[in-house]
Simulated assay, not measured.
Amino acid sequence: MSKRPPRVLVIAGSDSSGGAGIQADIKTITMLGGYAMTAITAVTAQNTRGVRGVEVLSPDFVAAQIDACMEDIGVEAVKIGMLGNADVAEVVADRLEDLPCPIVFDPVMVTTSGSVLADEATIEVFEWLMELATLTTPNVPELEVLGGAAALTSKGIAFLAKGGDADGPMVEDRLVLPGKPDKVWSEARIVTRHTHGTGCTLASAIATHLARGAPLEEAIEKARQFVREALHAAPGYGGGAGPMGHQAVRLD
């Protein structure tokens, strides 16, 4: 009998256009050989041009989804994305408080198209989640809202500072771990407007590789390569920030 796929639970919002959120997470986990489960926090009406509406699910129902997955299927890793509001964020943190498996937290605040997905009250709960997480993956504006690299470092938060939103021909991602030298990845920028869901995809890919037993740096390296291949394989859909080509990537 072949080895069963590692179980990855995604706690995040749905993207009706399929490029980001739960849809990107499921595609990524599946393509990387994992078994994807979901606890949906919110549903959105959106496309490549922006978000038209958001309906946040109740904290109790989000918790019920988490409990249902964990009590029956089990889990080897968790990925957290869009949370919707502070009450949902709190119940998620409570459910994950003592979970003995890797947790990757993508602190989603603003979409690629510029739509705000987290208010101030929700962001205040992020510190609790960052303390629980194996890794937090903020982009440039998210890192600034969270207080900057120095602030997170002083709190002992493990994070990957993503550089895709910075200017310049190179993209630099910096892994900061308490008590260890920084690890930096730097590669030429892939110039494309089809970047919808890059953060969701990266975090889910890292979580999947961690679920498979990879060390953190190796998980990040493989996840970054998956994102780059998916960017190259973008199908060209939409008139705004288009989706990537998850289905075209063939990587271990």
Rank of each mutant, 00 (worst) to 15 (best):
L96S: 01
A149L: 05
G19K: 12
K222Q: 14
G168K: 11
T153I: 03
D25Y: 14
E187M: 14
L132T: 13
G239R: 15
V191K: 05
D106C: 13
E172L: 05
P181D: 01
E124T: 11
I11D: 08
G19P: 14
E71L: 13
T48M: 06
E218H: 13
A24W: 05
V43G: 10
G213P: 13
D67C: 15
K183A: 12
E218C: 02
V125P: 09
M109W: 06
G147H: 10
A20W: 01
P181K: 05
V249G: 12
I26W: 15
L175Q: 07
G74Q: 12
A20D: 06
L32E: 00
E131M: 12
L96P: 09
M130W: 00
L32Y: 11
A161W: 00
N47G: 05
G213S: 12
I11E: 08
A211D: 00
P215E: 02
F126Q: 07
G84F: 07
S186M: 09
V104H: 05
W128Q: 12
R189N: 04
T41Y: 04
M31D: 02
T136F: 00
E172A: 14
D167W: 08
L83G: 06
R228Q: 09
I22A: 08
E71A: 11
A230H: 01
V176H: 00
E218T: 15
P107A: 00
G238V: 10
G168Q: 07
N85C: 15
G18N: 09
P100G: 04
V110H: 09
E124G: 09
G50D: 11
A12E: 05
L129N: 09
V140T: 15
K155N: 02
R95V: 15
D173C: 11
G34H: 04
P178N: 12
I29L: 08
D60A: 15
A233S: 13
A86N: 09
E127G: 00
F159V: 08
D252G: 14
G34W: 01
V171Y: 01
K79T: 04
D15G: 04
S2R: 08
G84Q: 01
C101P: 12
S113P: 07
I11P: 13
L175M: 02
L83I: 02
M70L: 15
V108T: 03
R193F: 06
A121E: 02
K79F: 04
A24G: 10
G242H: 03
K79E: 05
D167P: 08
L99C: 08
E229L: 12
G156K: 03
A230I: 14
V104F: 06
G19I: 09
G148D: 05
V54C: 09
T44R: 06
M82Y: 03
T28V: 09
L143Q: 00
L152C: 02
P235N: 01
Q247V: 00
D72C: 06
V125C: 14
V88Q: 04
G156S: 03
R95T: 15
S2M: 08
K79Y: 07
C69G: 15
L146D: 01
I26A: 14
A230S: 13
L32M: 13
D15W: 04
A20T: 06
K3L: 15
A93D: 11
I26R: 11
V191L: 08
A63E: 12
S58N: 07
E90C: 11
T137N: 06
A150S: 13
I123M: 09
A214Y: 06
G179N: 01
